[in-house]
Amino acid sequence: MFIIALTYIRPIADIEANLQAHRQFLDKYYADGMFLLSGSKEPRNGGIIIAKAGSLAEVQKIVQEDPFHQANVAEYEITEFLPSKTAADLVQYREL
């Protein structure tokens, strides 16, 4: 499991200009079952994506497709973690 933390590095107008394409990117990976949760940070200086992927390399490759990355409007920090406890409804995501 991976936490993808985006931090905006350009003005919000640049983010808005790429937002529709970014949402289409998200939709693609939700449809594939790769992305589980996503949303804006508060205050709105970036976002978070929770992803289920096989490897860090796979996540790094996916990030390259994000229009925010391609437009150089956000930086990314990827953290891998192994969920050992979950809410009952999320038991299928436990790894330990």
Rank of each mutant, 00 (worst) to 15 (best):
S38Y: 06
Q60G: 05
A57P: 05
P43M: 03
S40M: 14
V59L: 02
E77N: 07
V63C: 06
I9M: 12
A71P: 03
I48D: 01
E80G: 00
I48V: 09
H22C: 08
G33R: 12
A13Q: 15
E42I: 11
R44Q: 09
A71Y: 06
I9F: 06
G33W: 00
S38E: 07
I3Y: 14
A53F: 04
G54N: 04
Y29K: 11
L96E: 12
I50A: 00
L56I: 05
D27S: 14
A5W: 13
M34S: 13
M34Y: 08
E16Q: 08
Q64I: 06
I12H: 10
A53T: 04
V59H: 02
F68H: 11
E77A: 08
S40G: 06
Y8W: 03
E65N: 14
F2Y: 14
V59R: 00
Q60M: 06
L36F: 02
K85H: 06
L90N: 03
N72T: 13
Q60P: 06
S40E: 15
P83E: 04
S40T: 14
M1I: 10
I48Q: 05
Q70M: 10
A53E: 03
F35W: 10
Y93M: 01
I49E: 00
A13L: 06
A57F: 14
D89P: 01
D89Y: 12
S55K: 02
P83T: 07
K41N: 02
E95M: 10
Y29M: 06
E77K: 15
I48Y: 09
T86G: 07
P43T: 10
Y29C: 04
K85R: 12
D14V: 02
G54L: 01
G39P: 13
Q20T: 14
Q60V: 01
T7Q: 15
L36C: 03
R44M: 08
E95V: 01
Q60T: 02
S38R: 08
Y93S: 02
E16H: 11
D66P: 10
K28T: 15
A51T: 10
V73D: 07
V73F: 00
T79G: 00
S55T: 06
D27L: 11
D89G: 05
E75Y: 02
D14L: 07
E42H: 13
G39Y: 10
G46I: 13
H69S: 09
G47Q: 09
A74G: 04
P83A: 05
Q60H: 04
A13N: 15
H22N: 09
A13F: 10
S84I: 11
Y8F: 12
G46A: 07
T7N: 14
A17Q: 14
P83C: 09
H22V: 03
K41V: 08
V73Y: 00
D14A: 13
